[in-house]
């Protein structure tokens, strides 16, 4: 293979591909790209646990797989429990070098799987739990979840009755478990995302990574805009990139360029927000600004010191 030139880019991405072409994900699927980066970071010694979600389908119909690493398909609410079991089995076999990664959607994390997840991280099981968040039950036909943002259209929150509840703060919930590592990541920042997966792999104990995954059919956006939306989510501070160590030490990894962009730039590319009034957008902007200020305050006020 030809050696890649890197002068035009200032970061490295592992060359090895651990996902296959031919998966049945929709064109422009953010979750598919997220898996590709995750496995590039974790390497072939990885086992993946997938509860009911888009990836149950993307991973391939029997007897095919779109991953080069083993996958265990399991029930909607069980990702935390099954991952704990697989971890225990591997440890008994002496295969401690194998990373266990639970890979669940927002439905399986925020709603249906939160009990098993909370229990597993409360026990500080040594695994990485990834929530790829496309902000609704996309696989079953775009029903709202507790990860769906305020005022977004879904099939169960139609334009006449858009969702009236804010998105659940899953990062705060996970940080409140005081687990070693909690982080956000998204596909427009592959270097940041790969660094976080590598860091998670290097840490013993429970790790939680929240990945924002644009979904063209569910967000009613152009397939070609998936990276752009991911980037705008970060630049508009709708989805800041940060990490929380031991529930306390907050670090913002990507600061929006030139103070960021208005949320309207992020919202206007998505059909699910097309019905928003100017007042709605102003309210979203105010909420995003408030959350950002709170995050910055947390990052500045972090006082965690390593226990000896």
């Amino acid at each position: 293979m030809r050696k890649p030139k890197t002068y035009a880019r200032n970061y490295e991405i592992p060359e090895e591909e651990l996902t296959y072409s031919g998966s049945v994900s929709c064109p422009g699927c953010g979750a598919t790209l997220a898996m590709r980066y995750a496995l590039k970071a974790l390497g072939p010694k990885t086992m993946v646990v997938i509860p009911a979600c888009c990836w149950s389908i993307i991973a391939g119909p029997f007897p095919y797989s779109s991953l080069t690493v083993p996958i265990f398909h399991t029930a909607f609410e069980t990702a935390g429990a099954v991952s704990s079991g697989i971890r225990a089995a591997l440890d008994i076999l002496g295969k401690e070098d194998i990373t266990v990664m639970a890979w669940a959607g927002d439905g399986g994390t925020f709603d249906i799987g939160i009990q098993a997840l909370s229990a597993a991280v409360e026990r500080n099981e040594d695994f990485i739990y990834v929530c790829y968040d496309n902000e609704a039950y996309m696989n079953t036909g775009i029903q709202r979840s507790s990860a769906t943002p305020w005022m977004a259209w879904t099939t169960t929150t139609p334009v006449k009755h858009p969702k009236d509840e804010p998105k659940k703060d899953i990062m705060a919930i996970m940080a409140a478990h005081y687990i070693p590592y909690t982080a956000t990541a998204t596909i427009a920042y592959p270097d940041d995302m790969i660094a976080k997966f590598r860091k998670a792999k290097s840490i013993h104990g429970a790790k939680f990574i929240h990945v924002l995954s644009p979904c063209p059919p569910g967000w009613k956006s152009e397939a070609s805009d998936s990276i752009k939306l991911s980037r705008l989510a970060v630049q508009s501070k709708v989805f800041p990139l940060y990490e929380i160590e031991h529930g306390e030490k907050v670090t913002i990894n990507v600061w929006p360029k030139d103070g960021g962009v208005p949320v309207s730039e992020y919202l206007r590319l998505q059909g699910r927000f097309r019905h928003l009034s100017d007042e709605n957008i102003a309210a979203i902007q105010a909420e995003v600004d408030r959350n950002w200020e709170r995050l910055v305050a947390k990052a500045k006020g972090s006082v965690y010191t390593e226990l000896v």
Binding site: S21, V24, G60, Y64, S66
Partner: peptide, 12 residues
């Protein structure tokens, strides 16, 4: 139901 081949069969 274990996988026996890759999704490369599926020419998307």
């Amino acid at each position: 139901p274990a996988s026996m081949a890759s999704t490369l069969y599926n020419k998307t």
